[in-house]
């Protein structure tokens, strides 16, 4: 990471955390990097010596002189909390919909598996009791069910992975403590 990308990323992160005097810090780190470069480091080495974006961000946020405005607009926060009964359940429902859809996909896969297994066993009964052609037809249907079960199960696995990474993203976005664990 060179100096410019470092400063640009740092600026973005500082804006995200609402640091008011971010320019002071950017200037300080820009000069600090220049000094390191003058003393013979390459840009990448200088950024590495400073500690990278995450470490610098944690240092700035835990600095005594940092100006992060507290929730200034009391009315806004009061409204937000007051309307919790309205948007809370909506948010919960929106969060639950994909999870329940996923559950539905899993149930479809399980029912296909059961239907496929049952007709597969049944086709052997049909073979002895009715005839080979009928048994072949039923076997074909059971293979269709079993193949469908496998495909839908794979769809379930794929969607589960997607949902998992989406949740990870949400966790990173809304958990400020996450930056200390190196998740940003």
């Amino acid at each position: 990471m060179n100096k410019q990308i470092f400063l640009k990323t740092l600026k973005k992160q500082l804006q995200k955390f609402g640091v008011k005097n971010s320019d002071d810090y950017l200037e300080y780190y820009s000069e600090y990097l220049d000094d390191l470069i003058e003393n013979g480091s390459t840009e990448e080495e200088a950024v590495q010596k400073v500690g990278g974006v995450k470490k610098v961000l944690v240092e700035i946020i835990s600095d005594n002189d940092v100006e992060i405005p507290q929730t200034s607009d009391r009315l806004k926060s009061a409204l937000l909390i007051g309307s919790l009964p309205v948007w809370g359940p909506l948010l919960l429902a929106a969060y639950l919909v994909p999870i329940l859809l996923l559950l539905a996909v899993l149930l479809i896969a399980v029912s296909f598996l059961l239907a496929g297994g049952w007709t597969l066993v049944g086709s052997f009964v049909v073979m002895t009791k009715v005839g080979l052609l009928y048994a072949g037809f039923q076997l074909g249907i059971s293979l269709l069910f079993l193949g469908g079960a496998l495909l839908i199960e794979q769809l379930f696995a794929f969607l589960t992975q997607k949902l998992f990474s989406f949740n990870k993203y949400l966790f990173r976005k809304f958990n400020v403590g996450g930056i200390r664990n190196g998740l940003v």
């Binding site: 076997l139 074909g140 293979l143 193949g147 079960a149 496998l150 696995a157």
Partner: peptide, 25 residues
């Protein structure tokens, strides 16, 4: 619980074989 192209491949094979068998009979 992880996407596995081998399983998906065999799923497609089963569906195709099932379709052919079902229609032929």
């Amino acid at each position: 619980f992880k996407f596995n192209s081998k399983i998906a491949f065999w799923g497609i094979i089963l569906v195709v074989v099932g379709l052919v068998l079902a229609f032929a009979t």
